[in-house]
Structures are given as structure tokens and as C-alpha cells.
Computed example of a mutant assay.
Amino acid sequence: TFSDGEEALNFVLKNLNDKIELPDIILLDINMPIMDGFQFMEEFVKIKPKLGKKIVVYMVSSSVDPKDIERTKKISAISDYIIKPIEIEKLKAIIENL
């Protein structure tokens, strides 16, 4: 768990080839301090080919703004857009799909 996108990105960069430390899934909020979800994804897409494992990314937000949803759909590294609050059934489905 990280408080902001920059902290999360630094962790991923530090552990590029560590399959144990790298997460299987990232639940990424749009609104975070220092580096928001979209800024994180701009950097994540650049390092994704260097990662030692596949990481599935979901954008999570309370925003129902069609612009946010469309912007998310344009980023191929994001699997889906989830509107908060996240229902337990949705989380179970995400985990089962791994």
C-alpha cells in the first residue's frame, strides 16, 4: 500500500526484476497526492517492458465522469475502470481472473 503514485512508482522501479516483491495487481486511484493515477500510468507504461512479471492494473475512482473513463480506456496497460466503492464480488472476480 502506498500513499501516492510517486512512492508506488519508486517501489516498482526499485524491484523491477523481483517477482516476489512486485505486486500481481495494482489498484490505482486517479486522485492521489504528488503523482495522480494518470501520471503514474505514463511512467508505468515506459517501464512495463522491463518488469520481471506481468502486473494487472485497475484504475479505481469515485469519479463517474465520462472523460476519466474514456481516458482510462485509451491506456492499454489498464485492465478496467472500477467505480468506488468497490463491491466484494468485483474484487473476488478480479482475483479469480488472475
Results as ranks from 00 to 15, higher is better:
D24H: 13
M59K: 01
A77R: 01
I88C: 08
I82H: 02
S63Y: 09
I78W: 04
L13W: 04
K54R: 13
S62D: 04
I82K: 02
Q39I: 00
A8S: 13
F44R: 06
T72W: 05
P23Y: 12
I55L: 12
G5R: 01
K92S: 12
I75G: 00
L9F: 08
S62A: 15
K50M: 13
S79V: 07
V56C: 08
I30P: 01
G5Q: 01
L28N: 02
I34L: 01
F40G: 01
N31H: 06
G37F: 02
F44L: 09
K67N: 09
G52Y: 11
I47Q: 11
I95A: 14
I55Q: 06
V12H: 05
F11W: 13
F11K: 09
K74E: 15
K46C: 03
V57W: 03
E42Q: 07
F40T: 04
I83M: 05
M41E: 00
P33N: 06
P66A: 01
D24W: 02
I47P: 11
V64E: 14
K50A: 12
K84M: 07
V45T: 15
K14N: 05
N31P: 08
I75W: 11
I47E: 08
E6G: 10
P33I: 01
K46E: 15
F44M: 05
K74N: 15
D29F: 10
I75S: 04
I95Y: 13
I55S: 03
K84A: 03
L9I: 07
G5Y: 02
E89D: 15
A8N: 11
F11I: 03
D24K: 14
K48P: 00
L22D: 06
D4M: 10
Y58G: 10
P66T: 08
I88P: 03
E21Y: 11
I95P: 00
F44E: 03
L22I: 09
L13F: 09
V12A: 07
F40Q: 02
V57S: 06
K50Q: 12
D18V: 13
P85F: 12
I78R: 03
I94Q: 06
F44A: 12
P33K: 10
G37N: 01
K74P: 07
K50T: 06
P66W: 02
L98P: 00
K74H: 10
K90V: 13
K54P: 00
Y58R: 06
N97D: 15
L98E: 04
K19W: 04
F40R: 00
K14V: 05
F44V: 11
D65S: 10
S61I: 10
D29Y: 09
T1P: 08
L28F: 01
F11Y: 14
N31V: 05
K50E: 10
I83H: 02
I78C: 10
E21M: 12
E7C: 03
K14Q: 12
E87I: 09
I82R: 03
F2M: 06
L13G: 09
K53W: 02
S62W: 07
V56Q: 07
A93V: 05
E21R: 15
I20Q: 15
P33D: 05
D24V: 05
D24C: 06
D29L: 09
P66S: 06
L22A: 13
D24Q: 15
P85N: 11
F11S: 08
S61M: 11
M32L: 15
E87W: 01
L13R: 15
P49C: 10
S3A: 11
I20P: 00
E96S: 15
K14Y: 02
D80P: 04
P33F: 05
